[in-house]
Structures are given as C-alpha cells and as structure tokens.
C-alpha cells in the first residue's frame, strides 16, 4: 500500500525546548494510525507541522505526495482536523459554525446541508443547532468540533485527542462512526489519545513518541509482544516509563502550571 503521510527527519525547536527530535515515520493510505505518548511528548507539535500550522526547524513532511511547506495550498485540501484545543466561534450558532466550514471547504450546498444534518444528529446537537456555541457545555463543544471536522470528508483526518472530556457512550459512538468512514471511504485516520483502550481497539498501527523521539512503532500486538505484556497500557508504560512528565507540559497547560507554581510559592 502507498504512503499518504510521510515525515522524514523532522525536528522542531522552540526557544528552550526541542519538542520534536529527528522524527521519521510513514502512514499508509486507508490506515487508522494511533500516535501515542505522554504529555509533552510532541504529538500536537507533530500534528501542527503536518497541518501547515507550524514550520519545522528541519526535515520534510508530505501529505499525499504534496510537500506541506512548498505546496501548502494543495496539502490543505487533503486533510481535516479536530484540534486538541477549542477552535469554534462561540458568538455563532452551532449551525453557523458548520455552515462556515462548508463554505471554507467549498462544499456543494445540498451535500453540505444533508451532511450537516446527519453529523449534528449523530453527535446529538441537531435540536440545539440554533444555540450560540458559547452556551454549550465542554462535551457539547467537543462533539461539535468533531462533527465539523468530519463535514468535508477529507482524505486524511487528524484527530488530536478527539474524545477528551467525552462520556463513554459518545466515545463509543464516535469511534464506530469513524471506523465506518475509514472502511466505506478509505479515509486515513491519524489520531492521538490518552485512552489506551481506545487505541488498542481501533488503531491498525501505533507509533509511540516520548521526549520528541519515536520509541516504538507497530501494531498493538507487536508492541505487546515486544514488551512481553498482555495489554497496550502495560506495553505503553513499559516503553515510556512510569514517571510523570510534569516538566514538559504543553501549551496552555504549561502556562496554568507555571501560574499555579508561582501562586503556591508565596
């Protein structure tokens, strides 16, 4: 099978941190690929580089043969993404957020209308379609983000902790739907999660990243064999250790964390 995502010797340095350190991997077309690792490992940074939001310090990334730096526009047509952090407009209604997305991705009007209805019903927000998003609960926002990310049926779907903060029923429902999309349309799924059971159940292949480096890759069976364990969670802990990564919290978390430390010091 051909590769649809290719990452070659990619490094991303922020001022003091090397978030991603000489990472290389490939994802095949039609694959459900789990990208796992502890907090601050470099998962979101990798996704941001793949989705043209960040420039790598070094290395090459491509989506369906398009270099994400040199052929940004072509690359953007290929994927959809659900970000780890919120990206909805709270002053618009749920429906308006979907509508805006449909126009940004130049969807046919009728198709957009029927998919919007289908997806909003799936995530059980159809009866709230005319409410302003800022009045939604965390889980409702999350569900809307996912529905929006699925709206344009991209070739590759990036999901950065899609199920964060969702109840078990909704998580189940969503993964079923995503698996269906993968089977029916051959959509490639690239996701991160901290629920290892989820990854074990849906991922065809998994890569483990820690401190900006890939530490293992393979099917969940292979990872279990390699570590002599009987479930993915144990294999994961075997491969990444049991210490908590509080020295490298990511993004907004690190600010909150710094604030908390600052406050408790006095």
């Amino acid at each position: 099978m051909e590769n649809i995502i290719s990452v070659q010797h990619v490094t991303k340095k922020y001022k003091e941190v090397i978030a991603v350190n000489d990472v290389s991997f490939e994802v095949r077309k039609g694959e459900i690929f789990g990208f796992l690792g502890p907090n601050g490992a470099g998962k979101s940074t990798t996704i941001k580089m793949l989705t043209t939001l960040l420039l790598p310090t070094e290395g090459k990334l491509s989506l369906a043969g398009h270099d994400v730096i040199k052929e940004q526009h072509a690359a953007r047509k290929i994927f959809g993404i659900v970000f780890q952090d919120p990206s909805l407009d709270g002053d618009l209604t749920a429906f308006e957020n979907m509508q805006l997305h449909a126009v940004l991705y130049k969807l046919d009007k009728r198709m957009a209308a029927s998919r919007t209805e289908e997806l909003m019903k799936l995530v059980e927000l159809w009866d709230r379609k005319n409410s302003l998003v800022k009045t939604f609960s965390g889980g409702m926002k999350r569900r809307l983000e996912i529905a929006r990310g699925l709206l344009h049926h991209p070739q590759i779907l990036f999901l950065d902790e899609p199920t964060l903060g969702l109840d078990a029923q909704t998580r189940n429902l969503l993964w079923n739907y995503i698996q269906q999309l993968n089977e029916r349309e051959g959509m490639t799924i690239f996701f991160t999660t901290h629920y290892l059971g989820e990854a074990e159940a849906v991922a065809h292949r998994i890569a483990l990243i820690d401190h900006g480096k890939i530490v293992a890759a393979g099917t969940s069976e292979e990872l279990k064999q390699q570590t002599g364990t009987d479930n993915l969670e144990k294999a994961y802990l075997e491969l990444t250790g049991t210490s908590v990564r509080d020295e490298t919290l990511s993004g907004a978390d690190s600010k909150k964390e710094a604030m908390r430390r600052f406050m408790t010091k006095r």
Binding site: T52, K77, F79, D85, S87, L104
Partner: peptide, 11 residues
C-alpha cells in the same frame, strides 16, 4: 479562543 486555527488550515 482558537477560532483562527479553523481558517488557517482551510484551503
């Protein structure tokens, strides 16, 4: 509020 990401990754 993060909305800009939605427009930045769009084609």
């Amino acid at each position: 509020f993060g909305f800009h990401k939605e427009t930045l990754v769009a084609p």
